[in-house]
Computed example of a mutant assay.
Amino acid sequence: MNEITVQELKEKIDKGEDFQLIDVREDFEYETSNLGGQLIPLGGVVIESEKISKDKPVVVMCRSGKRSAAAIMQLEQLGFTNLSNLRGGILAWQAEIDPELNVY
């Protein structure tokens, strides 16, 4: 499984690269803090897979990297080959990029 670090994600954002960010956490988690990605909770990721691009890189994130890894495994069964897991999730982002970010 491809992984991307929070530093690599920040570089993509800062450079304005064309990619999709999918957040597989629950609504209440997303409302607490998010990085602006599209919210598709893990339980609905297969059902809503048509919302996920197959034409450009996709970074999948969650709180720590475990649920996003599970989402990627499910999506790869559907033929997705353009997915990267955000290593450490939003907790790593808060620890390494934005210590002011409200996490739980």
Rank of each mutant, 00 (worst) to 15 (best):
E26C: 08
Q94K: 15
Q94T: 08
D18C: 05
V59M: 01
V24I: 08
P57W: 04
K56H: 10
F19A: 03
F80R: 04
E96H: 11
Q20Y: 10
N82I: 08
L86C: 02
R67P: 02
R25T: 07
I22S: 00
E8R: 04
S68Y: 02
N82K: 10
F80H: 07
L75P: 04
T5I: 07
R63C: 00
D55T: 13
R25E: 03
I4A: 00
A95K: 15
A95N: 14
E11L: 13
K56P: 07
K51L: 13
D14W: 00
E17Q: 15
E29F: 09
F19D: 02
S84K: 13
T81E: 14
E31V: 10
K66A: 12
G16E: 10
P57D: 11
E76W: 06
I90R: 01
N102Y: 09
M61T: 12
V59D: 00
R63V: 06
I72A: 05
I40K: 03
D14L: 12
F80S: 05
G89H: 02
D55M: 07
V46D: 09
G88A: 10
K56M: 11
I13M: 14
K51S: 11
K54R: 15
V59C: 01
E17I: 06
S49V: 06
C62H: 03
G89E: 02
A70N: 12
K15R: 15
W93S: 00
N82C: 10
A71S: 14
S53V: 04
W93R: 02
I90Q: 00
L83D: 06
T5P: 04
T5C: 07
T5R: 05
E26A: 10
Q74I: 01
I72N: 02
L21V: 08
L78K: 14
C62K: 03
F80G: 04
D98T: 01
E8A: 15
N2E: 12
L78E: 13
L78H: 09
V60S: 04
R25V: 05
G43I: 08
I72G: 02
I13Y: 00
E100G: 13
I22V: 14
L91A: 09
V58A: 06
G89Q: 03
K51R: 15
L75Q: 05
E31D: 14
K10I: 00
L35D: 00
Y30V: 04
V24E: 02
S53E: 14
Y104N: 13
G44K: 10
L35W: 01
I40G: 02
A70S: 13
A70M: 13
E76Y: 07
L83E: 06
G44W: 10
